[in-house]
Amino acid sequence: MKKIFSHPRSLRKVTTHYCPGCGHGIAHRLISEVVDELGIREKTIGVAPVGCAVVAYDYWDFDCSEAAHGRALAVATAIKRVKPKTIVFTYQGDGDLAAIGTNETIHAANRGENLTVIFINNAVYGMTGGQMAPTTLVGQKTATTPKGREVKGQGYPLKISEMLKVLPGVKYLERVSLHSPQEILKAKAAIKQAFLNQIQGKGFSLVEIISPCPTYWGMSPRQSLNWIKEVMLKEFPLGRIK
């Protein structure tokens, strides 16, 4: 008999704190599988964000660093520069990467840092209680947009991946989603590509993962997957951006 499915070595056998139907657990697992498959666990360093995934280092079984809110790519830049043989990735939410940390995102990308970025876009702030994210959709209700996000005064969903496309330092950009098994497999392939790029020294790679947040979308897990497919992907179309 051939074993075709097992617990990844790079993922600790612990229960996570994530809500039912949350996408973070899946994303953590995909990264762990990729790290195992590439045989890089002992030289991988993950940089955790501030946000729901703040204790991601309690779930991954490799070296990790925390970073102040928004500064994951500053921390990662330094780690990679002083330890060029390590494989360094950041794992950041929409607030961390596209609001408080936009500056670090743009400049690490523009310097062409040889890093892998996993960007979790769930269109809402989870850890703080469901406030507006830069990626919140127009009309979407959150704790700080009680009437729904209005363009006047709150602007449009920020498309950071599309913005990064114009920077010559950026080598790879892909938007994937976790709303179905097929899409999850594509997400894993993209994550693997982003790590391979770093191993091959190609430069800055970012995978944007559209991820469900049933709790702060006010939906059941099943409804939230449907909402991604029917609503969110219209604003954030999937596929290779660069």
């Binding site: 940089v47 970073a67 500064r71 500053a74 921390v75 330094a78 780690i79 330890k83 500056n103």
Partner: peptide
């Protein structure tokens, strides 16, 4: 040369952690 003072001190965090 960091993009800001914030980036600079957090780069120091990363390098020091190594």
């Amino acid at each position: 040369q960091a993009e800001s003072e914030l980036a600079a001190i957090n780069m120091v965090f990363g390098a020091s952690a190594c």
